[in-house]
Design a protein around this nucleic acid. Structure first.
Ligand code: FES
Ligand code: FES
Lengths: 168, 168
DNA sequence: ATCAAGCGGACCAAATTGGTCCTGTTTAAA
DNA sequence: TTTAAACAGGACCAATTTGGTCCGCTTGAT
């Protein structure tokens, strides 16, 4: 269950759609600009999202992407699995390759439990919930070299040294 | 928090030591043979374990490795962090590189929660607990091409198609 | 017809994974 | 005091994954 940039970008992209009225079509570069994601990479990711029936694409002038399901019905786990495939915390838990050490291996049980916990977390969180918590892109993003405007998160993000940099 | 082979081998290696009377010195190739791990790779891993003060090595004839702490006191999390370093579920949670999207990002909170859950699981399990559940290597291992002797795990490992292959 | 968008595949560099191998050093024992 | 057994450490390696880019194709609206 490794979370790569692709999953993160997918989630952020969906959040950008979720912030808008349901059914609104948004162009790729708008989303990419809003969340500061390389547009060509986001294109790839939204292709997966479209294949996974989470968004619908329309081509040509006036085209773009829209949500096909309500943000409340899309869980983070779905998003991750759509973009990363059926991933697992370790190769031992992988469906096809499987565990070399057979069924007696205590580790498999431990790993499986840990994986279940993270799946619980992700399947218990929806895009809508995240959209509610998310401060829209333009305000917050670091943007790889652009100015950073940070205001204190309502989530306790303990030990973050970002607090001092506020209001710069 | 990606679990690679190194972590798995480290755990299995420690289990091999934990099965023996405390303080017994075991050679690398014995452990490797017991758990079916490439001996040269296991050597590397045990170097980390030694640096992490989980095992002590002695060189020369009659040398090998021994536990320096009781199996009850070593948590799975410690082992993983010793061999993998301070790993995180996603790069956004990485200490140094950090999160590009600053403190307002709702995803960070989600990822952090998921990561906390898996850390809970791993820090709540000791080598001793696993050793109790683990069927010793020679009986169970698949051994990349060697014969496989499987008997049903006492852990419910649901959906495992291995059951049919029992007693082959 | 034409232009604006996404589609899809080829391609890419860098990092990581999962090792091997060789040259030490240390230590016990012949 | 050799000598052999065992780990230490570093160099090296191939395969895979990650995080993208690019370009030509198709689709759709005007
Ligand atoms: S074999 Fe990898 S954990 Fe059981
Ligand atoms: S920036 Fe990666 S999750 Fe917040």
């Amino acid at each position: 269950m490794q979370i790569t940039r692709a999953s993160e970008y997918a989630m952020l992209g969906l959040l950008a759609l979720a912030r808008r009225p349901m059914g609104e079509v948004v162009m790729l570069d708008v989303v990419a600009g809003e969340e500061d994601i390389p547009v060509s990479f986001l294109g790839k990711i939204f292709q997966s999202l479209a294949r996974g029936k989470l968004v619908k694409s329309s081509r040509g002038s006036g085209g773009g992407f829209m949500l096909v399901r309500t943000p409340e019905s899309i869980t983070a786990l779905e998003v991750i699995e759509v973009v990363e495939g059926p991933v697992s915390l370790t190769r031992c838990l992988d469906e096809d390759t499987g565990c070399e050490h057979a069924s007696g291996c205590a580790l498999c049980g431990l790993f499986a439990e840990a994986q279940d916990r993270v799946k619980e977390v992700f399947s218990g969180t929806t895009v809508a919930q995240l959209a509610g918590r998310h401060i829209p892109g333009g305000m917050v993003r670091n943007a790889r070299g652009r100015e950073r405007i940070v205001f204190r998160s309502q989530q306790s993000q303990a030990g973050s040294s970002l607090a001092e940099k506020s209001a710069v």
